[in-house]
Design a protein around this nucleic acid. Sequence first.
DNA 1: GATAGGAAAGGACATATGTCCTAAAAATCA
DNA 2: TGATTTTTAGGACATATGTCCTTTCCTATC
Lengths: 229, 229
Amino acid sequence: MKNLEIINTYLRKYKIESVFPEEVQHLLSLDNFAEGEVICSQGQLAKNLYILVEGKIKVYTTSAEGRTLILSFKNPVEIIGDIEYIRGIDIINTVEAVSAVSMISVPYAVLKKYAKDHAPLLNFLLDIITEKFQLKNSSLTFNLFYPVEVRLASYLLSVSSQEMESPDGEKGSMVHIRDAANLIGTSYRHVNRVIQKFLADGLIERQRGSIYVKSREGLKRLAGDNIYE
Amino acid sequence: MKNLEIINTYLRKYKIESVFPEEVQHLLSLDNFAEGEVICSQGQLAKNLYILVEGKIKVYTTSAEGRTLILSFKNPVEIIGDIEYIRGIDIINTVEAVSAVSMISVPYAVLKKYAKDHAPLLNFLLDIITEKFQLKNSSLTFNLFYPVEVRLASYLLSVSSQEMESPDGEKGSMVHIRDAANLIGTSYRHVNRVIQKFLADGLIERQRGSIYVKSREGLKRLAGDNIYE
DNA sequence: GATAGGAAAGGACATATGTCCTAAAAATCA
DNA sequence: TGATTTTTAGGACATATGTCCTTTCCTATC
């Protein structure tokens, strides 16, 4: 199967065939990334708009002091490079493939030439970006209002339910402790402390760097209704 | 001067005459709010898109437990209700007039009918929303990476420089301590502690609930380059 | 001007979180 | 298999921040 066909299959699958005008459709390309590969790096010049159509990615930022903060994990459909396209700025956050990943990409130049005023694209971007905004808004308030214990409970709930949906089988709701710490914005050490508490209460089990959820009910009690998003 | 004329003056002033199509222009109205008045409340049904054209507003959210977090202060031009319009959701945050405020308002119904695919409006919204997103993104990372001392220094820098620009005269760079605490997401008590430190170092002066900046240089040293936005 | 009421500042203590280091466990390699 | 290295878990202590309460200072009022 040719790339163009694959691309069209994805566009149909996610019902975004009409997002790009004719002239642009031919100029879409399909980029594949291996697990662990960096898709784009904070601070670099942004050139392409990407649409995640297959696999899972991780978006994170690194502080001047070298600390890492995971901003989100994303599954299809998701857009990367949208903010940078519109604002004309360098890449804000680093994006890395967590599994094998396929992305449809379009150069900014093409979009600027053929799709600057293409309402379907603009509406699509608005939709995606407002969703991102809302998510970011809730994480901000959530992080400032609640302690790590609540945030971790909430994160475990959100991740474990998502994993359920994907046909991952036994590995099911495994969560890497280091990821959790970086996502919540706290130290590995402190997450470990909280984990001990959860363990003592029989809410989770631990296995070599990973957690899996035993009692969603118990976690819900801790998290209140404050599930991520 | 008729409202319509005033509205047109503002549209010209902020160079957004072409954002709305003809049919919508006639349906714009001008709403005025007194200092302290609530413009829209978290959780309510959203009905209008607002454009802030005069005065200063405060956007904040309240947690289930009743704690308040100030998300931002905004000056013209700013849009309120954009996310809600696009996503079709209830109002996310409460917005309150800090000074006397004028806003141009348009019912969602009008926009949906006449401007759903009006590229200038869509591009305008994209511009505003991506800016908001970026700001929120930086506050999130900033809040998670740095302690209150750094955040307060950074906030004081950002506010005092903005105030300079406005012709406020002597009151210049006065900052309310309670506002600062709520914006930074910490307790009044703790901000007070940090203030004592700043006072001891001669960075600021205090006067009955307000701070004013004495040494931007000193604060900069504390904040690193991490000025808000 | 004296006084009551309310807002602002600060003290004392508890809790949350970070840093640094050590112990335990697993993985790697000879 | 045993030794070495790497990764993970946890201990000890320091710092950051929250809560509650007391004190201090302003301001309005008579």
